[in-house]
Design a binder for these strands. Sequence first.
DNA 1: TTGAAAGCGGTACCAG
DNA 2: CTGGTACCGCTTTCAA
Lengths: 344, 344
Amino acid sequence: MTIQAGAPLPRRPATIKDVARELDISVATVSRALSKPHMLRPATVTRVREAVDRLGYRPNLVAQNLKLGSTGIVYVVIPALSPFFYDVFRGIERAALELGYSAIVAHTGRDPLREGEYFDQVACGRADGVLLVSTAQLEIEPPHKHTLPPTVMVLESHGHKNFPAVRVDHVVAATQATNHLLELGHRRIAHITGNVRAPMSVKRREGFVAAMAAAGIKNAEENCVPGEFTPEAGQAAMETLLQRPVLPTAVFCSSDEIAVGAIRAIRAAGLRVPDDISIIGYEDQRLSRIYDPQITTVHVPTFDIGYQAMVKLRRILAREQYEHDVVLPTHVFIRQTTAPPKKA
Amino acid sequence: MTIQAGAPLPRRPATIKDVARELDISVATVSRALSKPHMLRPATVTRVREAVDRLGYRPNLVAQNLKLGSTGIVYVVIPALSPFFYDVFRGIERAALELGYSAIVAHTGRDPLREGEYFDQVACGRADGVLLVSTAQLEIEPPHKHTLPPTVMVLESHGHKNFPAVRVDHVVAATQATNHLLELGHRRIAHITGNVRAPMSVKRREGFVAAMAAAGIKNAEENCVPGEFTPEAGQAAMETLLQRPVLPTAVFCSSDEIAVGAIRAIRAAGLRVPDDISIIGYEDQRLSRIYDPQITTVHVPTFDIGYQAMVKLRRILAREQYEHDVVLPTHVFIRQTTAPPKKA
DNA sequence: TTGAAAGCGGTACCAG
DNA sequence: CTGGTACCGCTTTCAA
């Protein structure tokens, strides 16, 4: 076990002045050699480059930001690190790369305080804008009202602030899921919701109930059982459902993770998916493809959402025109967990 | 569809000067009222606070950083956003919170260039240090040699640079996994490796071969089939294994995702896990608990690794003593995919 | 207790 | 083509 003494930090980094002094030229020249080489005599540029190498000089970005007033960074603020978020982030990142930005993930753990902090950081010049990825209720603290940075909502729209958004319509998507089940011939369809405090959960339930009503099935509310966005909650909710005197032939789960839990419960009860009960998930997480059986689910175009959100943020920053609210379409991806109901 | 005109960005944020002018006092006083109120007459402090509120003033962090020379931010640089990374990050975050830092995720997509860029950003004052989470081979570009920022490696040690690290010993861990199988009575044990370019893959294989040799089974190399860290690769590798004239009774998979693929292949062949073939994974990803059956795996203490890495980085930044290389223990978590071999 | 001013490390304008 | 210098917004001596 090697104990490291309070080791010296890397020595003071070279500054532009060091380079200027080394070459006995002005800092202005050094600065130009680096950012606008075409303005200088090639020989000068070369000398500067060499000195820069020799001294290991790197421009201090903080100073650069301060002077320029922009950072080329956007904060991607997310409530929770979830697999669902991957693809969204990939889309953001792709666009950021193309547009010359760095996208940095700021995780809040659903803590409104930290969310506020990150907004502050951005408002205070640490980044140029924020992409607010929402999968749950958001609370942006009032203190920031004066100086909210350029923001676009990703996945959701925001209840209170009227931020520009790139999102999907959960009501429509839930309707699609329900219709898929209906079209297979199911009538006794149950729904396991996500965390009811999350607006998306209530919208999905809303879509479910509406689709059922449109098919002539009233009081579908009674077929809804409250859950959370975890396999454990899905399992518990499915167990409740399995106790009822009359079993559903299909279940619309508010997320893929819930679906995984539901399937486990069904199997534990000695029943089979989809033979006895069909299951449809939501989100099209990687999990739904990996799982055995592969889960039929509502695909949310996460990559595109991320991509377009970043593009929109750029337009805002560049003061170009943009569409305030963009809604992307969802689709049902049919895989192995849905089938027509068994003939009784 | 509402087209938003090139909307005005939030108006120029108030600066410390605005506040000073508003109150007809000096900027120094404003600065002090905010950071060292005890130095001022309480009345002054109050007046300043009010003006700050009124104008919506927030100190510009960039300017503050420039002056103070530190940011309170650490970059968590990761090659790929993976579930495995979650818990590591949670640990980092917990420690960061306790120590008064913000941990920001910088994703490189395994692109050495971007990795270099982030290092630069930090070296150039955008953050105080970096936690380099490695799940694969890393290439830090030479140009940064002069001014590498304070860095600690997380999960791995670095082949070339001798960064301080908090990690596990993959050779030992692989030995544990293999021994578990051996102790159950298995002798025909196969191993599906991860991407062979990743050092961790070769270490795991090394541990496997060593454990087999120690049990008197020579040439275990022949039981190794190359894969990648994905379910698809795991499935393909397992299919290869299933073609062999004599089947293994157990398979040590280099990751949980590989295990998932292997299980799929086994089932597709009409065999059962663990009745016909036992499977052990590695990493203890969330997936291994969610999956049905739950996967026996080697637990890597991801949260602790993250936590301790952040603590170490703080010590480095504070110029305190620290242990250069910290190795945390791993354990086999026995779940549902391993059992004694069938009596033939 | 408060103010004036230097300076953090750059960039860009204005001269020459 | 190059140098001098003001300035970005803030903190912190040094004086008053």
